[in-house]
Amino acid sequence: MAHVATSQSSHDHGHGHDGHHDLEALRMMGFWIFIITDCIIFGTLFATYAVLVNNTAGGPSGADLFEMPGVIAETFILLTSSFTSGLAVLSMNRGDKKGLIGWLIVTALLGASFITLEVTEFLKMIDEGAKISTSAFLSAFYTLVGTHGLHVSIGLIWMVALMLQVAKRGITPVTKRKISNISLYWHFLDVVWIFVFTIVYMMGVR
């Protein structure tokens, strides 16, 4: 890739040649469309949840199960991590490699604590006898919230992989694109969580 990065400066004169910047822009757009498809995945899960939410089959409902302090903590943690992932991008744009990795570490730690809280919450509910097989409502609940959690977990692994790449290769057009993408992904997961928080938890307990 090194020779590509250098040749890009010499060939970057408009048409007829595929400079590297164009390629990275293509990849950004592809990732954006992937995010849209992920939106539809969550939309379908929300639709299923909305249809099945009252089908508790005699089992516990959201009002019986949800404990808001933990959920509120999760919400503010994820919000903050969305902000810190933005700060990572700001450091990157300044060319500050240390700042970039630092903010990524903060983001990942916040993400990991979010997941820890969520897993604890799930385990406690299961312990109380509210399993995925208890009712249609709980099937929909665990699948929707769990899919979000799975996305966050995958994002964490990806983030660690990117920290290693930035540490090794520095801030190049390729690592820049990758960091921009993961930060976009992270903001997106935050948006999904806002709707989980609103529709599942807030509307569930009130």
Partner: peptide, 28 residues
């Protein structure tokens, strides 16, 4: 993506004993 989710839900029903589309326990 809608197909992916729909089949995943059917799989979760079959594999984890969930009740999205079953006749009992509130499934539809």
């Amino acid at each position: 993506p809608i197909l992916t989710v729909t089949l995943a839900l059917l799989f979760i029903d079959r594999y984890f004993g969930a009740h999205f589309f079953t006749l009992d326990m509130g499934g539809n």
